[in-house]
């Protein structure tokens, strides 16, 4: 299968570490991820909360240029918008015609879109992942946090079980880590309320961190730029507001996978994490290739 990578805006900014660690893991696996040429923003919540036609047209413009390749996505929010547009356009001929008028070319809604978790677990396969692991993350207890938009709504994303997804857990197991059993895998972190009303994010993020801690996790693993940023950048504020101490590093799954595969430290951008993970990694005897 050939892929073309849709980074999305966050992966060029606050989630540059997600971008570089995704590319490092792909390189280790010999997975080609050339960037989709001239991709544009998926429109995010701003588009779907103001103009449903624009919300379908923006993804259609990018997806119609994929030239038959499967579009690979790392950002959970982009993934959701691209798959939602596909679902709408492929199932509604009248809408497809309208979108064609807006975009200026017809698009059938059938360019395959897959998240990196799906590609690594299902296309590459857990056996090949396990075979590429040279430095297993032994003894590291991880809370796999999927957030909202990978698994919901299931009829659109068709990602995994909507209430108890396990793709990231399986990947972390293959990397030698120990996923904890916890009930907040798909709770919401507050997403872009981080900008418009951060009190929402402090409330929701605090519950997620508290539950991960109660479940015995050493750290959180994420697959979404907003989940990562909210739980990491605002963790100190949550601790201060609720009188708790967490000190839970919040990784992207590609960073931990890259560590297990012996990817070079600079490519994994561990220095970008606000809650610093060095003490935890040292205590577990996990280190990156210099």
């Amino acid at each position: 299968m050939s892929y073309t990578f849709f980074p999305g805006c966050s992966l060029e900014g606050s989630a540059k570490d997600f971008h570089s660690s995704t590319m490092a893991v792909a390189a280790k696996l010999g997975l080609g991820l050339p960037e989709l040429k001239d991709w544009i923003c998926c429109g995010s919540t701003a588009a779907h909360a103001s103009d449903p036609l624009l919300a379908d047209a923006l993804p259609a413009k990018s997806l119609s240029a994929a030239g038959g390749a499967t579009v690979a996505v790392a950002c959970a929010a982009c993934y959701s918008r691209l798959k939602t547009a596909n679902h709408h356009i492929a199932s509604d001929a009248a809408l497809r015609a309208k979108v064609a008028e807006v975009v200026g070319r017809d698009y059938d809604g059938r360019t395959p879109v897959l998240h990196m978790l799906e590609i690594l677990c299902r296309d590459v396969g857990l056996d090949r992942i396990a075979a590429a692991v040279s430095r297993p993350l032994s003894g590291l207890k991880v809370a796999c946090y999927y957030g909202c938009l990978l698994a919901r709504p299931p009829e659109i994303t068709n990602f995994d079980d909507a209430e108890n997804p396990t793709l990231m857990d399986k990947l972390m197991e293959a990397a030698g880590a120990e996923p904890v059993d916890w009930p907040y895998k798909t709770e919401c972190c507050g997403a872009s309320a981080s900008i418009t009303d951060s009190s929402i994010v402090l409330d929701l993020g605090n519950k997620i961190l508290a539950m991960a801690q109660t479940a015995g996790a050493d750290c959180i693993v994420t697959a979404c730029p907003l989940c990562q940023l909210n739980l990491d950048l605002r963790q100190k504020d949550m601790e201060a507001r609720f009188g708790r101490t967490y000190n839970l590093p919040v990784f992207y799954f590609t960073q931990l996978l890259g560590l297990a595969m012996g990817c070079p430290a600079d490519k994994l951008s561990l220095a970008s994490l606000v809650v610093e993970p060095q003490a935890l990694l040292q205590a577990k005897g996990i280190g990156a290739e210099a």
């Binding site: 060029e12 540059k16 570490d17 001239d38 036609l53 624009l54 008028e101 807006v102 975009v103």
Partner: peptide, 28 residues
Amino acid sequence: KGKLPLFGTQVGGKSERKALFARAAKGG
């Protein structure tokens, strides 16, 4: 932490995009 680059990337086709937004606002 390198999470806020000073200069973002952009893509060409600004006038085409403006027309796309205008057509979407009109419903097609």
